[in-house]
Design a protein around this nucleic acid. Structure first.
Lengths: 345, 345
DNA sequence: TCGTTTGACCCAAACGATTGACCTGGCGAT
DNA sequence: ATCGCCAGGTCAATCGTTTGGGTCAAACGA
C-alpha cells in the first residue's frame, strides 16, 4: 500500500555547484547575486553557470533569509476572503510582488491579534499589507504596534504615513454627477460603519458634488453595521423605509449595493424604475446582478500594486509618502440607474 | 523628512534566553519543543519560561526551518482570486493550517509553470494545494512533477492518489431530485470544459438520478469554455437557444449558474416562471441574485481543511487515501426553482 | 563497596548561504 | 629593482536552531 517513497533526492546546494565548477562557494554566491565588487573571468562565469544549469540549482531562500534577514515575503491580512473587492487588491499586490521575487502569505484577520503579527515576523515576513476596511482604529493601532512595517490598504490612518488609498472623493463625485445628470434630486447614501470611510471622503465627495444642484442640503445617510451584502440588506431596507422620498441611492461599496438591491426587491420597489442605485467598486459580479449595477470603478488592482511598492520602500528603510491613486475612477453605466420616472409609494 | 528610524531592536534569540536563565541554549530548544528525551528540573523550567516571557522571545522560524527543513508553510495555487467558490476552499484550508501553526502562501496560477513550484520549494514551502478546477491535465501533471508534495483540490486526478474532492455525484443527484419533485421533465445541463468535472460525476450523478423518472434519456448538455459568469452567459444562451423545450437547467458550478441567469434574462425568459435554475455550490452571492438562486451547498470549507490534512499526511511521509468528503451536500431552496408553469416560446 | 543506571544538563557540529577580510600573481609606473 | 595595484579568487565567521553525543553527580541494587 505505502509506495516505496524515494529518498527525495536532496536538492543541490551551492557547495555542490562550487565543487562542480571548481571554485569556492563564495564566488558562486557573489556571482549569483551579482555582487558589485566582484570581477569574474568570463570563462569561470561560464563554468559556474553551466554547473548551475546542469544540477538544476536554486538558491535555498531559507538559508539566505537567515543570513540576510530578508525573507522576500510579505503578509496580506484581510478581514474576509470572500469580498471580491479585496480579492482585486490582493490580485494586484500579488502580481507585483511575484514579479519582484516576493511571495505573499495570506491571513484572515479572524480573531487574530497582535500576536499574529509577531508570528509572521518570526516567519521572516518582511512587511505586512493590512486591508483594514472594517477594522476598529484601536485594532489597527495594535496591529501596527510591532516593529514590522505595516501599510494599511484602502483605509487612511490619521496619525500615520503608512497607508494607501484610492481617491474615493473623486469616486463619490462621479456617482453624484451621474445621478444629477439623470435628474435625481432626492438621493440617499448607504455607507459602512464610521471606521470604514474613516475620513468620510466617499460620502463627502458625493455630497459636495451634489450640493449645489440639489439645494445644498446634505443627503440622508444610513450607516450599515458592516460591509457584507447582509449588512447592506438590513441598512438598505431601513433607508428605503425611512426615506421614501429618495429616487436614487449611492452605496459606498459594492456589497452594500448588492444588499440594497435585494432590499428594494423585497420591498417591491422596481430598480431602476422607482429607484436608481449606483455603487462604488466595479467587479464582474456587478454585471451579473439584475439589473446590472451601475458602478464607479476604482483602480483596486493598481492600489494593491502601489501599496506593495510603498511597503517595499518602507522595508528598504525609506519613509515614502502615503499612496493616493491618481488614476481616475470611471463610471460604468449599467441598468440600475435611470432618470426618475415616477414617485414611489 | 526621514524619521529617525529606530535601530529596530533585534528580536531576542534563544541564546539570550539561555543566558538569562543560566542554561545552555540546547536546553531551551529542547524545552520549547518538548523534546521527549528531556527531563527538566521544575525549577529550571520555570526560570527558562520566565526568561522567555520577560524577553518576549519567539523562535526564529527561518533558522528552525533551515535546520529541520520543515518550513511550516504550504502554498495554495489557484487559477483566479475572484471565484468565491475557491475563496471558501482557501478559507477552510487557511483556518486549519493556521490552527496547526502553518502559514499559507497564495499564488495565482497565471502564466505560472513548473518553475513556480521550484520557487516555492526554494522558499521552504512544505507542500502545495492546487485548486485545479480548470487546468489542463498536462498542466497538472507538470505541476505535480517536482518532488514537492502536491494535492489537487476539487479535482480528481486519474493516475494519482493525491487529490481531494467533495461528492459531486451526490450533489448532482440532489439537484436532480429537486427538479424531478417539482415536476420538471425536460431539463438541460450547463457544465464546464471536460477538464473540469473530469470524472464526470457532477453530470452523471444528475443524469442518473433523473434517468428513471424522465424516460432514461440523457439530458442535453452544453459545455462552457471556462468557469466564469461570462462563460456561463455564452454557453447558457446557447443552451436556451438550442433546447427551447427545457423547463429547468442544472448548472454544475455557481458562476455558470449566475451567467445562465443573465442569459435567461437577456432572452426574456422568466426565472423561475419559464425556467428553473439550480446550481452546485452555495455562497452568499447566490442569495443576492434576482431571483435568489436555488443551490446545492457542497462542503467546500471543509474540503479545504481536509485537503490540508491530507497534504500534511503526505508531508509526513504517509500515503493517505484520496479525500472524498462524506459530509452530505444540502439543497438550499430559493426562488430560482419552481414547478414548470408554462411552456416557453 | 563498586558498578550501573538514571536525571539534568552541556558541547559542538550541522543546516545553506552571505560577506568582510585576506591572498596571489602579473603588470605598469617610478 | 621595487612598489602598488588590480583582477580574480579564497577563507572563515556568522545568521539562530536543532540534535547526536557526551559529562557529572546522586541514587540504587547486589
Amino acid at each position: 500500500m505505502a509506495e516505496p517513497k524515494p529518498p527525495a533526492a536532496k536538492r543541490p546546494t551551492m557547495k555542490q555547484v562550487a565543487a562542480r565548477a571548481g571554485v569556492d562557494v563564495s564566488l558562486v554566491s557573489r556571482l549569483l547575486n551579482d555582487d558589485p565588487r566582484l570581477s569574474i573571468a568570463p570563462d569561470t562565469r561560464r563554468r559556474v553557470m553551466d554547473a548551475v544549469r546542469e544540477l538544476g540549482y536554486r538558491r535555498n531562500l531559507t538559508a539566505r533569509s537567515l543570513r540576510t534577514s530578508r525573507g522576500l515575503m510579505v503578509a496580506f491580512l484581510l478581514p474576509e476572503f470572500t469580498n471580491p473587492v479585496y480579492s482585486r487588491i490582493v490580485a494586484g499586490a500579488h502580481r507585483r510582488a511575484a514579479s519582484l521575487g516576493y511571495a505573499v502569505m495570506l491571513s484572515e484577520l479572524d480573531d487574530t491579534d497582535a500576536e499574529d503579527m509577531r508570528g509572521h515576523q518570526a516567519r521572516g515576513v518582511d512587511g505586512v499589507l493590512l486591508a483594514a476596511g472594517n477594522l476598529e482604529d484601536a485594532r489597527i493601532a495594535e496591529l501596527c504596534g510591532g516593529d514590522l512595517p505595516v501599510i494599511a490598504v484602502n483605509r487612511q490612518i490619521p496619525g500615520s504615513r503608512r497607508w494607501a488609498v484610492v481617491d474615493y472623493g473623486l469616486g463619490g463625485r462621479l456617482a453624484a454627477e451621474h445621478l444629477r445628470e439623470l435628474g435625481h434630486r432626492r438621493v440617499g447614501v448607504l455607507t459602512g460603519p464610521g471606521r470604514f470611510d474613516s475620513d468620510g471622503s466617499r460620502v463627502r465627495g458625493f455630497a459636495d458634488a451634489l450640493g449645489d444642484a440639489v439645494g445644498g442640503e446634505d443627503p440622508p445617510v444610513v450607516v450599515a453595521d458592516g460591509l457584507t451584502p447582509d449588512d447592506g440588506l438590513r441598512a438598505g431596507a431601513e433607508l428605503l423605509a425611512r426615506h421614501p422620498e429618495v429616487t436614487a441611492v449611492f452605496a459606498t461599496t459594492l456589497m452594500l449595493g448588492v444588499g440594497l438591491l435585494r432590499a428594494a426587491s423585497e420591498a417591491g420597489i422596481a430598480v431602476p424604475g422607482e429607484l436608481s442605485i449606483v455603487s462604488l467598486h466595479d467587479v464582474d459580479l456587478a454585471r451579473f446582478m439584475s439589473p446590472p449595477l451601475t458602478t464607479v470603478a476604482m483602480p483596486m488592482v493598481e492600489l494593491g500594486a502601489a501599496a506593495f511598492d510603498q511597503l517595499l520602500a518602507v522595508i528598504d528603510g525609506q519613509d515614502p509618502e502615503p499612496t493616493v491613486m491618481t488614476q481616475p475612477p470611471v463610471l460604468v453605466r449599467r441598468a440600475s440607474t435611470a432618470p426618475p420616472r415616477k414617485e414611489r409609494r
